[in-house]
Design a protein around this nucleic acid. Structure first.
Lengths: 235, 235
DNA sequence: CCAATAGTGTCTTTCAGACACTATATA
DNA sequence: TATATAGTGTCTGAAAGACACTATTGG
C-alpha cells in the first residue's frame, strides 16, 4: 500500500454525524448529545464520531447509532444524507462529515441521562434555538428533516418510525409529526390501504385503547408508494 | 490548530468524483477520462481528483469540472450526489470520494482528444461495459443516472441540459434521453407550459429548422414542477 | 348514553393518457 | 405538395379533497 504519490494536503479526518428521528406521542424528536469537550463544550450537537480505518461509512454510522441510542437497527432505517466539508467547520482542523439519517421507533428508546447516550429533544424546541447547535449541525438537521419529510412522500420508511405492528392511525400520526401538518384520517386510510403491497394486515391483529379497535398492519413488500403523497397539497 | 486529541486512524484522503451528463442529438452522454496512471491504468473513469486543504467540497467539484471540461458553470447545474468510502475501493489506501452530479448544455462542450480533457461517451455504451470502469465508478454512475432521472421529475434542472434559450421540443428531447423512453409531445407541451413560472417565453423568439418554428423559452423562477411528472407512468 | 377513533362511501375537481385536428415552417 | 414539427382541443379514467355516514370500542 504505497501512497507516496498521493497529495499530502488531501489528508483529512472523516467523521459521521447522525440525524436520528423518532416520534413520541405525535411529536417529532431528534437525538442530541451535550458536548463534554471543546470545541462547543456544553452545547448540543448531533451524535457522531470519526470513521475508523477498518470500517466503511455505513458501518461507522451504525456503530455510532448503537453507541448513542442502544439501537441495533433491527427495525428502523438508516441512510446516507449528505457530506459537509467547509474548510472552517471544525476549529480543530479539516474534518469532512458524512451525515446520515436514522428513523427509529419510539418504543425502542432507552432512557437518557447517561453521559454516553443521547437525549431526545422535540424538534420544534431545537429549531427555535438552532443557533446553539455545535458546528454546522443546524444545517445538517435542517437537511435531515427535509429528507425525511420528502422521503415519506413516496416510500414506506415512515413505518420505520412505528413499532413492527401498527395501526393506520399510528402511521398517520407519524406523517403528521414529520410534515408538521394535519392529514385527513379518512383520505389517508383510503390511500395507504389501497396502495398495492404497501401494508399487509396482521390476521386477527387489533389495537386496543380509546375508540373503535383498529386493524394492525405490518409494512408490506412494496417500498415505494405510487402515486406518492404530496405534503404541499394534501388536505 | 491543535489536533493531537483527534484519532490518527480517521485520517483519510478525500476526493471528488464527477458524473457529468449532457445530451447530444437526443442521446445522453457522460464525460469519462482514460486513466494514465495506476491503478486502473488505461481504464475509463469518472473525472475527479483530491480535495485541497483550502477548498470545500463544492469548490473542489467545480475546479475539477473546469479542468476536465472547460465549463465554468455559468449555466449548468452541479449538486452533491453521495459519498463512497468502502475500505478497499482504492488500492493505494483509504480514499473517501464525494461524488457530484453535473448537468451541462451540449453546446458548451469543448473537443476532447487532449489528455487532460474528458471524452463524451454515450451512456448506453458505457453501461453495456460498465465493468471496465475504474474503482466503484459503475455504482457512482448508476447512482448519478438515477438521481438525474428522478430530479427532472419535480424540478427544472432539465433546462440545465439545454442552451439558455430552448424550445419545448428540445426540453422534451432531454427528458426522453434521461428517462430512456418516449414522451408524448402534446401532453408534454401542455404540462410544462401550463406549470406556473416554470418556463417564460422569450418575446419574439422563434426556432428555425424543420417543421413549424417553435416559441423559445428561458427557464422560469419556479425551480419546482408541481405536480411532478412520473417517469414510470408517463405515456 | 356519549365521546372517540376506525372504516366506508360518494361527490366533485384536477390532471394525466390518448389522440384528433389545426398551424406553419422547410425540402 | 409532401413532410415535419408546433401547438390546441377534447374525451376519458384515475385519484385526490371534502365530508356524510356507519361501526365499535371505553367511560
Amino acid at each position: 500500500m504505497d501512497s507516496t504519490e498521493l497529495p499530502a494536503d488531501s489528508l483529512m479526518r472523516v467523521a459521521v454525524d447522525l440525524v436520528i428521528l423518532t416520534v413520541v406521542d405525535g411529536v417529532l424528536h431528534v437525538a442530541l448529545v451535550t458536548r463534554g469537550i471543546a470545541p462547543f463544550r456544553g452545547r448540543p450537537a448531533l451524535p457522531g464520531g470519526f470513521v475508523r480505518a477498518d470500517e466503511d461509512l455505513a458501518q461507522a454510522a451504525q456503530r455510532e447509532l448503537a453507541e448513542e441510542t442502544g439501537i441495533e437497527l433491527g427495525s428502523g432505517h438508516l441512510e446516507q444524507l449528505a457530506s459537509y466539508g467547509a474548510v472552517g467547520r471544525d476549529p480543530r482542523g479539516r474534518v469532512v462529515s458524512v451525515a446520515h439519517l436514522a428513523l427509529i421507533p419510539a418504543e425502542r428508546l432507552r432512557g437518557g441521562g447517561d453521559a454516553r447516550t443521547a437525549d431526545w429533544c422535540p424538534v420544534d424546541a431545537v429549531l427555535a434555538d438552532a443557533g446553539r447547535l455545535a458546528f454546522d449541525h443546524a444545517r445538517v438537521l435542517a437537511d435531515g428533516l427535509e429528507r425525511a419529510a420528502s422521503k415519506i412522500e413516496y416510500t414506506s420508511v415512515a413505518a420505520s418510525l412505528c413499532p413492527p405492528e401498527f395501526t393506520v392511525g399510528q402511521l398517520r400520526e407519524v406523517y403528521q409529526a414529520v410534515w408538521r401538518r394535519p392529514v385527513d384520517p379518512r383520505n389517508f386510510h383510503r390511500k395507504v390501504t389501497s396502495a398495492e403491497d404497501f401494508l399487509v394486515p396482521v390476521p386477527g391483529g387489533r389495537s386496543h385503547g380509546a375508540g373503535r379497535p383498529a386493524q394492525l398492519y405490518r409494512v408490506g413488500p412494496a417500498t415505494l408508494l405510487r402515486p406518492p403523497m404530496d405534503r404541499q397539497t394534501i388536505n
